[in-house]
Nucleic acid binder design. Structure first.
Lengths: 232, 232
DNA sequence: TTCTGTGAACGGATTCACAGCA
DNA sequence: TGCTGTGAATCCGTTCACAGAA
């Protein structure tokens, strides 16, 4: 386990690093200088051993007996994840969802910038949305080169998603954030992350269905023993 | 492995079932009568063995030598997941993100209904958004009981998310869809699903950073050898 | 013959437990 | 003494491989 990252690092580890970074940012904001893997783990619902093991793939950032320097570790993680620069993205699909994404204020502070907006429908082309003018997807490849777009955000209906993804891949984009509820086919060197609230809900309901209705009783009632009895 | 679900089913399995259901719905729409685990797996980027194993937790839905009846299996999965009914949800936070969620048309067709909207800010209370009138979170517990709300959607800033979650949990809500980039503390019987595009992007960049820039060259160019040379 | 259902084998991620350093 | 870093042990999900049904 050395910092040269010569061996392949499990993807689950990479998926956790942004969460570590987020919590470290909060701790830094709170003015904390040191954290132990113990405390970081408690905040994140992750075991201390897991955090230490994850970090050990990339180097030795802690001090025995003291813990990790919050600022230092945050800095290291940001560099490992490539968050120490700006990433240029393109949005495809300027319907209701697409417009909401363009209006989302959470990307910019983290260095993600939507620099161009496209649509399949010529009827949308030319419209202004904030600082952007909607372009036709035909113009995407050229824009990718000119603007240095590395990430595509897919916000078209599921039925059009594959078509849009093919266009992105052909334009050289290798990372896609997909809001369409569709199974996309991409080459093995293209990465896709799904944002799909409906699918997320559909697994929640499995567990809700198992819960007896009595558990719906609010905690206030349960904490007033004698007034309400839910079990003999 | 029997249909009585007496043993605990791995959560990853439950997370895959909605994806199976989604693809089966497409197949049903296409008029397909049967699918093999092979074909379903190809569509979903999942191995056939995995699909068969996953389904075997719940029963024996296939016919040897033929495959699965598309309509039948879809029906079974919808019942297993509890999708054969309507689920009532509450939205908390009616800022830009919250309003976008209220306007999202993807929930209703799948049986998820946002029946009430709340905000922490009294200044928002009373405003109409579509068919809903914004209420103060103080009124949440009562609404949960009256409307049968089982799921809470958190769309407030990260700094207010924990407060909102506590209110939901106290009101008896046991399932939360969290759009706030925050690590929430909930009792062990409360389920949370995160919707966090920024965190998703932050793991993508790790892999993008590793890619040599030459890979940015579009496929069209690579397929015209001689015209473009990117490396000596 | 084809494809399901499923124990058994496998592999990889998580957790353990402790050596080692501050 | 406190907490990291990390091989070893463990756990658990995935894949294998085949018996069995249509």
């Amino acid at each position: 386990m050395w910092a040269d990252q010569s061996e392949v690092i499990p993807e689950v580890v990479i998926l956790r690093l942004p969460l570590y970074a987020r919590t470290l940012a909060v701790l830094a904001y709170e003015g904390r200088e040191l954290v132990s893997s113990q405390e970081l783990g408690e905040r994140l619902h992750v075991t201390p051993a897991q955090i230490r093991k994850d970090l050990s793939y990339f180097g030795r950032f802690g001090k025995q007996g003291r813990g990790y320097n919050v600022r230092r570790l945050l800095q290291e993680l940001r560099q490992i994840l490539g968050l120490d620069r700006e990433w240029v993205m393109a949005l495809i699909g300027v319907g209701r969802l697409g417009r909401a994404i363009l209006g989302y204020s959470g990307f910019a502070p983290e260095g993600f910038r939507v620099s161009a907006a496209f649509d399949l429908d010529a009827g949308e082309v030319g419209k202004r949305i904030g600082p952007l003018v909607v372009q036709h997807v035909n113009e995407l490849a050229e824009a990718v080169q000119r603007l240095g777009i590395r990430i595509g955000i897919v916000a078209v209906p599921a039925s059009a998603a594959q078509r849009v993804v093919d266009i992105l891949v052909n334009a050289g984009v290798r990372a896609i954030l997909n809001y369409a509820p569709a199974d996309l086919r991409v080459p093995s060197d293209v990465l896709v992350r799904e944002i799909d609230p409906v699918t997320a809900l559909q697994s929640l309901t499995y567990y809700l269905k198992l819960q007896p209705t009595e558990q719906l009783v609010p905690l206030q009632m349960l904490s007033a023993p004698g007034l309400f009895r839910t079990e003999p």
